[in-house]
Amino acid sequence: MEAPAQHQAAWRRWVEAPLVICGAALIFILMGLSFSDALLRSLFNKPIFGANDYAQILLSFAIAISFPLCVMSGRLIAIDTITDMMPAPVQKILDWLVTIMGVVILSYLSWRAFSNALEAASFGESTLLLQLPFGPSYYAVAAGSGLSALLLLVERLLR
């Protein structure tokens, strides 16, 4: 799947910008956390206890945001060697088939993550040291994969 190289439609900018800004904040915080934990521990003997727990939560949110961005930029890796050799109508049918496959599995993943989010507290799912709840992270994964499914479909419809 190559990125549609032509015009960057305005709606894409509107979807992309808030995701990039939130994701950037998360990744730079992750960087700062990792750096300052190491520094405080080595030079001042004052490590941030449970820094790993915060990192786990930050990572889950950052990845959830990165999924739709990856889909929108056409970076879902696929092998097009064989499809490229087929006649155009066949290519189109196959493209629809694999798009539907992707939309279905990502939507279902989104739904599953959403139900997991509702149950996370009842299974006592939390980080080990600080017991930060995993519920919000499940919601993030649900939103990220749901948006990915939607974008996959929209991109196909626009092609």
Binding site: R41, K46, P47, F49, A51, N52, D53, L128, L129
Partner: peptide, 19 residues
Amino acid sequence: NPVMAELVKAWGGIPVSMP
């Protein structure tokens, strides 16, 4: 775990978390 971390602090050590 968090309990041992508190104890290590009470004993004067510095608890560090890592996998």
